[in-house]
Design a protein around this nucleic acid. Structure first.
Length: 430
RNA sequence: GGAGGGAUGGCAGAGCGGCCGAAUGCGAAGCUCUUGAAAAGCUUUGGGAUGCAAGUCCCCGUGGGUUCAAAUCCCACUCCCUCCGCCA
């Protein structure tokens, strides 16, 4: 949620900033009217309450002085006032609910230096590392799902038998590669991020306040018999950690990482772009989250991008950094960089990490604050990014490792973690 | 799943329907004293809304109710703890 005061104090500028994200001005306009209405009602209610309190105190005094006869008429008067107050309070609550409802549909403001644009076509490639199209000419490349089935490390048929489309079964060396990737990622960040193993089921309240559950976002799976949700990303659990807390300024920044399973309903049919491990209902991910002071947000963002790129560097994968334009930013982000790895098997860039500067958008709803040493409490700024999203990185490692004899050579950095160097076809000579 | 107990400030822990945003203790911060430290003394020490400010208003797990007036009485819910059962 953005600060509703912005709609009262800096309306025009706010509408302009939201417009860059493609928000119809009618929405902030409606919110502004509701905010004004709420303020009027708050003032009205408070003055009525002041009157009531004064009257009640007076009655108390009269009672103590045994002046019943004087108290009685006042008491009748106060009864009447109280019912007026009750009505005003009910109206105020309604106005507050209406305002919250509209505010929850307004996305975060884009950072001012985010490029203009409407869709992913307007995103900006900031840099490309280790990619040369010539490297991929003159030989055949194979998509990871074919390699996986051939080497018997990925079993799409049985995954479908167990759970349906967009699920995966990894076997043998395939499973070891996944386990190795997560261990690698956790090790890389062990000195700068505190590792957390959170619950994978969270309360409605927690997932709502992270902005991952809204009226139009039904990504998350819900348990039938309990008021709990399967986390769609570790971010939900990590951001939930400090909800309703006031941290000390000296304790910031907080940097957390968590290796979790992520579940997403991914409403919409399976198809060409979801083959293999490209998009799954259930996958494993190492997530990075930071909470920091507002003034440190930009620097923390830059270092988070570097941290997210580090595993790709170590694995020797060609990747590029893409800055999302204002119109393509996610709902709660002020700035997003995507890391995309080149997949020779499908000849596409696949998003393997998304790093977001969320500013105070999530902490406002979750009430995650910090106490300034100079005095006063403020909302923390939050950032999140993938430390390593296993399925797509798994796919990239397998596709890039493909050798002319059909086997797959793992990147040297992964070897100690996976415990193997080359994945060969079963029964082939070793 | 069954039985009982509880929820008040950073923590512990009082709180007759009005003088209670709330005693007291601990913790923390500042100051005094001291060569320094400790000890002692003094002071400060929750969150939020509204307002230029003074102030006013709200918050004692959450939501309702009774009342002129609720931390205090009533109802519902949630969570936590203990014991029993089940269990990796």
């Amino acid at each position: 949620m953005i600060d509703s005061k912005l709609l009262l104090d800096q309306y025009d500028a706010t509408v302009r900033r939201l417009a860059r994200k493609g928000v119809d001005p009618a929405l902030p306009g409606e919110a502004r009217q509701l905010a004004i209405r709420r303020l009027e009602l708050v003032r009205q209610v408070e003055s009525l309450r002041q009157e009531r309190n004064a009257g009640a105190t007076r009655i108390g005094e009269l009672m103590r002085e045994k002046r019943q006869d004087e108290a009685e008429p006042l008491r009748a008067e106060m009864g009447e006032l109280s019912s007026r107050l009750e009505a005003a309070e009910a109206e105020m609550r309604l106005a507050q609910d209406d305002l919250d409802d509209v505010m929850s549909r307004i996305p975060n403001l884009p950072a001012d230096d985010v490029p203009d644009g409407r869709s992913d076509a307007d995103n900006v490639v900031l840099r490309t590392e280790r990619y040369d199209p010539d490297d991929y000419k003159g030989r055949d490349w194979e998509p990871h799902w074919d390699i996986g089935e051939r080497l018997e490390i990925l079993d799409g048929k049985r995954a479908a038998k167990l759970s349906g489309a967009m699920f995966a079964v990894l076997k043998g060396d395939g499973a070891r590669v996944l386990r190795g990737l997560t261990a690698l990622a956790l090790d890389i960040h062990r000195d700068s991020y505190e590792e957390i193993i959170p619950p994978h089921l969270v309360r409605t309240e927690v997932i709502t306040k992270t902005g991952h559950l809204t009226k139009f976002d039904t990504q998350a799976y819900r348990l039938r018999d309990d008021e709990l949700w399967l986390i769609p990303t570790g971010e939900v659990a990590l951001m939930g950690l400090h909800q309703e807390e006031i941290l000390n300024e000296a304790d910031l920044p907080r940097r957390y990482m968590a290796y979790t399973v992520c579940w997403r309903r991914e409403a919409g049919a399976a198809g060409k772009e979801t083959r293999g491990l490209q998009r799954l209902h259930e996958f494993h991910k190492v997530e990075l989250v930071k909470l920091c002071r507002p003034e440190d947000g930009d620097a923390e963002f830059e270092s988070l991008v570097a941290d997210a790129a580090r595993p790709l560097e170590m694995l020797g994968l060609p990747y590029r950094v893409v800055e999302l334009c204002a119109g393509d930013l996610t709902f709660s982000a002020a700035r997003v960089y995507d890391l995309e790895v080149y997949s020779p098997g499908v000849d596409r860039w696949l998003e393997v990490a998304s790093i977001s500067l969320v500013t105070d958008f999530q902490s406002r709803r979750g009430q995650i604050r910090f106490r300034r040493e100079a005095g006063g409490n403020e909302l923390v700024h939050a950032l999140n990014g993938s430390g390593l999203a296993t399925p797509r990185v798994w796919a990239a490692v397998v596709e890039h490792g493909l050798q002319l004899d059909g086997s797959v050579r793992l990147p040297p950095a992964l070897v100690p973690y996976a415990g193997i160097e080359v994945i060969k076809e079963k029964g082939s000579p070793s």
